[in-house]
């Protein structure tokens, strides 16, 4: 089966609150929402960010927007204020998730 990057079918936005990061993954076309639902699982997202995040990943489904919302706990090295990371908000992690491979 051909594999493409998630970037080809979806866009993403990261947001921070304390030590929690959320990444919304949104299908460009409503038809591709099923692909997201089936293949962008909490397990795969957790595996993709292994080493960077310490807590669990929770997924919320928004069929009304053709979107998934991932909430990544203990993901920001202690949170925006105390983190030593150069990107303490984790804003650049939205692009990192779009590297994920999708089978079509």
């Amino acid at each position: 089966m051909p594999r493409i990057k998630l970037r080809e079918i979806a866009h993403a936005r990261a947001g921070d609150k304390g030590n929690i990061l959320n990444i919304a993954v949104i299908a460009y076309h409503p038809d591709d929402y099923t692909l997201l639902q089936e293949q962008v699982t909490t397990e795969r997202v957790a595996a993709h960010f292994r080493g960077l995040i310490e807590g669990p990943v929770v997924r919320f489904e928004l069929p009304n927007l053709g979107a998934l919302n991932f909430v990544l706990h203990r993901a920001l090295a202690g949170g925006v204020t105390r983190s030593l990371r150069l990107d303490p908000h984790g804003k650049s992690l939205s692009s990192a998730l779009l590297e994920l491979k999708i089978e079509i």
Binding site: G15, K17, N22, A24, L62, L65
Partner: peptide
């Protein structure tokens, strides 16, 4: 869509002092 989900956790329960907002029917 990107901004609607920005800094959101559970989209069915966005807690504010005025209400618990639900984005799932937007």
């Amino acid at each position: 869509k990107e901004q609607l989900l920005y800094e959101i956790h559970d989209p069915a329960a966005y807690i504010t002092p005025d209400c618990v907002a639900d984005f799932t029917g937007v």
